[in-house]
């Protein structure tokens, strides 16, 4: 495990920012930390990076406890804080060199890492410019270069794409995926498509507690409600259609069937299935054996967006009650 978090709690005064959360991040995976604003993502990341200690609980990074081996942990982590703070009066090379030196790099190693980061992050053209003059996209690249300069095992990125335009978002995501191939990456976001585009593993956090933890597929599976299958059958007469209608109900796991109307000789049905079952194969077999002319069949799976929405809003309303 690259990161192990156990029973982590952080209080700000009486308010629980993070409430008894536990999770693991495997070496080499990209974890998406997903949640609405104020859910506790940033607090968790600040604790992992040793910016502040937890109220209670334990965190290990690469097998090292953050309380006991804070220095070694910090050496292993590259961090891009929220809002990507930078020294605007320094130029790109000066800044990266400064960061590198504080990580203990020097001489040949420093120069080679510097060159590599400038190449990988695509900031060669702006390397002598003051950071204050750079566009947000370039600043984000500089922030990532800074986080990677000492070749850390673990990258912690707090909302790495916030405030960027759509093109820049795609660029930064690609960069993260590229950088993340050899690293363990934890990134936080409140944007779902971000997780879908970059992450292997998702943790959804809401009001300081974890409400879901798993791969994208698992989450979609686990939180799939009844699914809707849309069908279009061809039949010359309406009577033939009426004969077909009850036969859908014989299929296992079908919850209800709805007739969706007629367009020429095409008849539409929508079938609701029980949670977690895929009956498309069965429908196809039935169509073949019964001689139905199947023109179209599509399944509407629960999107992660719906899962997210369901989890984060349900929790909120429960808590308020």
């Amino acid at each position: 495990m690259a990161i192990t978090v156990r029973n982590l709690t952080k209080l700000y005064g009486a308010e629980k920012a993070v409430n008894d959360i536990s999770f693991d991040v495997k070496t080499g995976e990209i974890l998406g930390f997903l949640g609405p604003n104020g859910a506790g993502k940033t607090t968790t990341m600040k604790i992992i990076t040793c910016y502040m200690p937890p109220t209670s609980g334990m965190v290990e990074v690469e097998g090292l406890d953050i309380a006991e081996h804070s220095f070694d942990v910090r050496k292993k982590i590259g961090y891009l804080p929220e809002m990507n703070p930078l020294y605007l009066d320094m130029n790109v090379v000066e800044y990266l060199e400064y960061s590198a030196r504080l990580y203990g790099l020097k001489d040949a190693l420093l120069r080679s890492r510097l060159k590599e980061m400038i190449d990988v992050c695509g900031i060669a053209d702006v390397r002598r410019k003051d950071i204050g003059e750079l566009s947000k996209g370039f600043r984000q690249r500089v922030g990532l270069a800074q986080a990677m300069i000492h070749d850390p095992e673990v990258l912690i990125l707090d909302e790495p794409t916030s405030g960027l335009d759509p093109n820049q978002i795609v660029e930064i995501r690609n960069l993260i995926r590229q950088l993340g191939r050899a690293k363990t990456v934890v990134l936080s976001t409140h944007i779902l498509s971000e997780v879908q585009a970059t992450c292997d593993h998702v943790i959804i956090i809401n009001e300081g507690t974890i409400v879901a933890d798993g791969t994208l597929e698992q989450l979609q599976q686990d939180f799939r409600g009844s699914e809707k299958i849309s069908l279009e059958l061809k039949a010359s007469t309406t009577n033939a259609m009426i004969a077909i209608y009850p036969k859908f109900k014989d299929i296992q796991h079908v919850e209800s069937v709805e007739y969706g109307g007629q367009e020429g000789d095409l008849h539409k049905f929508s079938i609701l299935t029980q949670k977690g079952f895929d009956i498309r194969e069965e429908i196809f077999r039935r169509a073949v054996s019964e001689g139905w002319v199947l023109m179209e069949m599509s399944r509407k799976a629960t999107s992660l967006e719906e899962v997210f929405h369901k989890l984060t809003t349900a929790e909120t309303t429960n808590n308020k009650q």
Partner: peptide, 13 residues
């Protein structure tokens, strides 16, 4: 103010 303190204090310093 700029938040760079967070970068500085998460370095091995």
């Amino acid at each position: 103010k700029a938040g760079t303190i967070e970068l500085l204090t998460t370095k091995p310093l």
